[in-house]
């Protein structure tokens, strides 16, 4: 019984040592070989809608409680894209902030209704101070598989 326990501890130790050097994988294995620039997706979303893409970027934000999304920086300044995963399927760790990630997933869009006070910007026809509703289309990637380096 004792030798069986020692063998179990030995296997556990070797597994941990072997895993230490790889990037951490999440979800499905990445199949695509070529990456798409995030700026390409942000600037031509209609072209990528519904398509599976492989993107790379720095993790600039992670869902603190459930790890169900993370934001990747674009190759261009002031741009980023959100990678959303099904709750519990993949959990991104908060300590990954600042690290590089390679993500494979499907581009999709959501419509978000926002409210703002009328300020006549962009030629709005409304009374100053009036609450205006606006529907915004946001593009995200439904993450299927990821490697955090």
């Amino acid at each position: 019984m004792k030798s069986l326990f020692k063998l179990f501890i030995g296997i556990l130790f070797i597994t941990v040592m072997l895993k230490a050097d790889e990037g951490t994988k999440y979800g499905k294995e990445i199949e695509l070989k070529e990456t798409t620039k995030i700026s390409e997706i942000i600037n031509n979303p209609a072209e990528y809608l519904g398509k599976t893409v492989l993107v790379e970027g720095t993790i600039i934000n992670v869902c603190a409680k459930r790890g169900c999304w993370m934001e990747l920086s674009s190759d261009k300044e002031f741009e980023s894209i959100r990678i959303k995963v099904n709750d519990g399927e993949i959990i991104f760790p908060m300590e990954a902030k600042g690290q590089k990630a390679l993500v494979e997933g499907e581009v999709y869009s959501i419509n978000v209704e926002t409210e703002h006070k009328c300020d006549h910007k962009e030629g709005e026809s409304c009374e100053t101070g009036e609450q205006k509703k606006e529907v915004k289309t946001i593009y995200q990637i439904k993450g299927l598989g990821a490697v955090i380096k």
Binding site: T58, I60, S73, E77, F78, S80, E95, K97, G98, Q99, K100
Partner: peptide
């Protein structure tokens, strides 16, 4: 420093190990 990113003109994010 692990990396840095500028999400907007006035904001800069700096990432360090366990800290941002």
């Amino acid at each position: 420093v692990l990396s840095s990113f500028q999400p907007s003109q006035n904001i800069l994010q700096i990432f360090l190990k366990g800290k941002s």
